[in-house]
Design a protein around this nucleic acid. Structure first.
Lengths: 104, 104
DNA sequence: TCTTCATGCAACCATAAGGTTACTTATACT
DNA sequence: AGTATAAGTAACCTTATGGTTGCATGAAGA
């Protein structure tokens, strides 16, 4: 993607607000976004370990995978298979202008 | 409330993010916020009429009242009884800084 | 190749959420 | 006072949601 294209993408893309707000409504998913916003890429395995150990979350890998698919539907997360691993990337584009009309 | 108190309130209040994101997750509630952000005060009756007529929503007054109580839990809405009517007021304070950490 | 490790997928379960209907209460108008 | 109007309350129904368990798949290392 060129710089120009990214500008267009950023400015004119129309996101699915339903999907975005739904994705944000769950505290575990917000925690996942917090984790992702702190690093570039994280594998599902790594993320699972972090959530369970660092954040004392009692949750299974499968449950986290489900949350990720909800986040992917909202395009807040991108994922890519790298060998054995699934690498997850945070995308905050959909969050820009999300509250426009209510705030500012 | 004095001007100084409002500053403190605005800057240091810690909102219940769970309640806020939950409140925002439903499209009908977001439509209600849209309506409210366009006027200062609206009665429940008036709001019901607007949602049904102007927005072609098939919904009962009771359902709307339920949505309002969710919005009140998130403190996105304040209400006040004025005689026969319930007057509803929008409060966007909880929305400020809501996405901080993810955007900007 | 054989095993291990990270993931994918499907069925199932309990509870939360959005909605309705029906009835009560309370203010306002005649 | 009597009636109409706006709102409050509660029981109930259906579906969405977050979670689990169990098993299949596919890449890596010994």
């Amino acid at each position: 993607m060129t710089s120009n294209q990214r500008v267009a993408y950023t400015r004119y893309m129309n996101w699915d607000k339903d999907a975005i707000f739904k994705a944000l409504s769950d505290p575990t998913r917000r925690l996942i976004l917090d984790e992702l916003s702190e690093r570039n890429e994280v594998t599902l395995y790594e993320l699972t370990v972090r959530l369970i150990m660092k954040h004392n979350l009692a949750i299974s890998r499968q449950a986290i995978a489900k949350h990720l698919s909800v986040l992917e539907d909202a395009e807040l997360v991108t994922s890519e298979k790298k060998g054995k691993y699934r690498v997850i990337i945070f995308n905050n584009e959909p969050l820009k202008n999300l509250l426009k009309g209510w705030v500012e």
